[in-house]
């Protein structure tokens, strides 16, 4: 009897480890933890709420596909230049492999998706940057695709809307990336001079060369709450000026206060606001201004 007691305690040494199959009982992604308030919620419901946290209104990252679905009319999107891909102009080691890996991961070919679509029936040309592909960085292809989308808007005489999400210029393409800032800005100017309407919506993050070119060149510059927007990186600024920066430095709200934005708009209201701006740019009303 006494012996039995001892064997029982010995058995307790073994810890229970769930088997491989048991581990997969909960499919990955069914729940999402908010990185801001740490609360856990159903992924499906979160997506239905445009990936805005129910508790703290944190705006989770959206990829280009989710973004397009969030503000365009269903099935209205027609993509252009989808199969344009980057080369390796500087022969940078591992660059091609990194691109291939991201193409595999994201199922898109570059960090921006462009095309045409409608918002409440109003036709637009659109460019949506995707931060899940190489941090949304801008190389030759991103610059060229955005430029062609602007040219498309010009050709169709429809407004141009861009959603930015980018860490800046893509280092692996060196000065060619830098020059895309000029290329896109020059195209926007031509479109603008032809009377084209430009709406820029800055999402998290919009920094460096993207912030210092097309992102800031809208007739209306909007941003999502909490988005990081700025030219130089926080760490670099702190090193340069040797002082700590305020908590909200370079957030959308901070920029609004500094007079750099027209409005900060929660994602759930974005489609309605864009639609209203588009509508105000359509002729209408009881009487018309007679242009000579």
């Amino acid at each position: 009897m006494l012996k039995d007691i001892f064997t029982k305690t010995k058995k307790k040494k073994y810890a229970t480890i769930p088997s491989e199959t048991a581990k997969q009982d909960v499919p990955e992604g069914i729940m999402t933890k908010c990185p801001n308030c740490k609360k856990i919620m159903y992924t499906k419901e979160l997506v239905k709420n445009l990936k805005v946290c129910f508790h703290c209104h944190y705006h989770h990252t959206m990829n280009s596909k989710e973004r397009l679905a969030s503000f365009l009319d269903a099935n209205s999107f027609e993509e252009i230049n989808a199969n344009m891909i980057s080369e390796n102009p500087l022969n940078f080691p591992d660059y091609i492999e990194k691109l291939e890996k991201d193409r595999e991961k994201t199922k898109i070919n570059e960090a921006v998706v462009t095309g045409t679509g409608t918002v409440d029936g109003q036709k637009i040309a659109v460019a949506v940057m995707d931060s899940t592909f190489r941090m949304g960085s801008m190389g030759s292809v991103v610059g060229e695709k955005i430029t062609r989308a602007i040219e498309k808007a010009d050709e169709l005489r429809v407004p141009f809307i861009i959603f930015t999400a980018s860490g800046g210029a893509r280092m692996q393409e060196g000065v060619l990336s830098l020059m895309q800032m000029a290329k896109t800005s020059v195209a926007l100017k031509r479109f603008s001079d032809n009377g084209g309407l430009i709406i820029s919506i800055m999402t998290h993050p919009t920094t460096g060369g993207v912030s210092a070119s097309f992102a800031s060149l809208g007739d209306y510059n909007l941003a999502e709450p909490g988005a990081l927007i700025g030219f130089a990186g926080r760490r670099i600024i702190e090193q340069t000026i040797r002082e700590e920066l305020p908590e909200d430095f370079q957030t959308a709200e901070f920029l609004l206060k500094c007079g750099q934005l027209d409005a900060v708009i929660p994602r759930t209201e974005l489609k309605g606001k864009i639609s209203a701006i588009l509508s105000i740019h359509q002729p209408g009303g009881d009487f018309q201004w007679q242009e000579n």
């Binding site: 800032m181 800005s185 603008s192 070119s213 030219f231 130089a232 600024i237 000026i241 370079q250 750099q260």
Partner: peptide, 20 residues
């Protein structure tokens, strides 16, 4: 210049506007 005041006064916008 990567500084606080530069960001507040719109370094990005100033550069972008010149390109434009």
């Amino acid at each position: 210049y990567p500084g606080k005041a530069a960001e507040e006064r719109g370094q990005s916008e100033a550069i972008a506007k010149n390109l434009f």
